[in-house]
């Protein structure tokens, strides 16, 4: 089973040289720490920056430089700043190559729910609906099951949707799975120490298992 850092490390393996990437809040933000140093990628922050750098030192904190999670950040050499409309223009027009975000539920058709729990939590969708509606490639970082053990990989989402048929790949604490164009979660890799049966039991939606499923390699 993977912890949050394990999920972030596995997702970092999906990053390719030359990509422009938008990282959501939470586990997706951690992915930046595990992108190989020799790879040239540019991180987009939807509040108006291309080229997010590492967190600042105590001395170099600048309140005018934050990421979408409102954390203080720095800029990489060669960064560009812009307004919020321009930020979503580049997202909407498909210029961002990879979007990594969290989810509360994903359906076997690739629908995603991550912004609202009726009666309990209404924080708003932020930029998530814009991102999932337009991104070419969406990877979701999530827990396979709720704390109570209920599957979050479902036939159909029960929570209000963020977007339709948009998730391409899921990295959970138990597995790596692709969402197939005609529906279904195709099991690609098992987390260290996790059996195929455990993944079967934790997946409510249609699970497709083709041949031997390798254990993922996390360095």
């Amino acid at each position: 089973m993977l912890d949050k850092i394990g999920i972030a490390k596995r997702i970092a393996q999906e990053v390719k040289d030359g990509m422009y990437i938008n990282l959501g809040i939470g586990i997706p933000t951690l992915v930046a720490n595990y992108i190989p140093k020799n790879m040239n990628v540019v991180l987009q922050s939807e509040n108006g920056l291309l080229g997010i750098g590492p967190f600042p030192t105590e001395e170099s904190i600048d309140p005018d430089l934050i990421n979408a999670g409102k954390q203080t950040i720095t800029m990489m050499p060669g960064s560009a700043l812009f307004n919020s409309a321009e930020s979503f223009a580049m997202i909407r027009s498909g210029k961002v190559d990879l979007t990594i975000l969290g989810a509360m539920e994903v359906s076997e058709l690739g629908d995603i729910a991550n912004w609202k729990v009726p009666g309990k939590m209404v924080k708003g969708m932020g930029g998530a609906m814009d991102l999932v509606a337009s991104a070419k490639n969406i990877i979701v970082a999530m827990q396979h099951c709720s704390k109570e053990g209920a599957s979050k990989l479902l036939r159909k989402c029960t929570l209000p949707l963020t977007g339709l048929r948009c998730v391409k790949r899921i990295v959970s604490d138990l597995a790596v799975l692709d969402v197939l164009p005609l529906g279904g979660f195709r099991l690609l890799e098992r987390a260290p120490g996790v059996t195929v049966d455990e993944i079967k039991n934790a997946t409510e939606g249609k699970l497709i298992i083709d041949g031997e499923i390798p254990e993922m390699v996390i360095i």
């Binding site: 919020s84 979503f88 909407r92 708003g124 930029g127």
Partner: peptide, 9 residues
């Protein structure tokens, strides 16, 4: 509540 990109646009 409005999606952020829609709000900006």
């Amino acid at each position: 509540l409005i999606p952020q990109g829609t709000l900006a646009e």
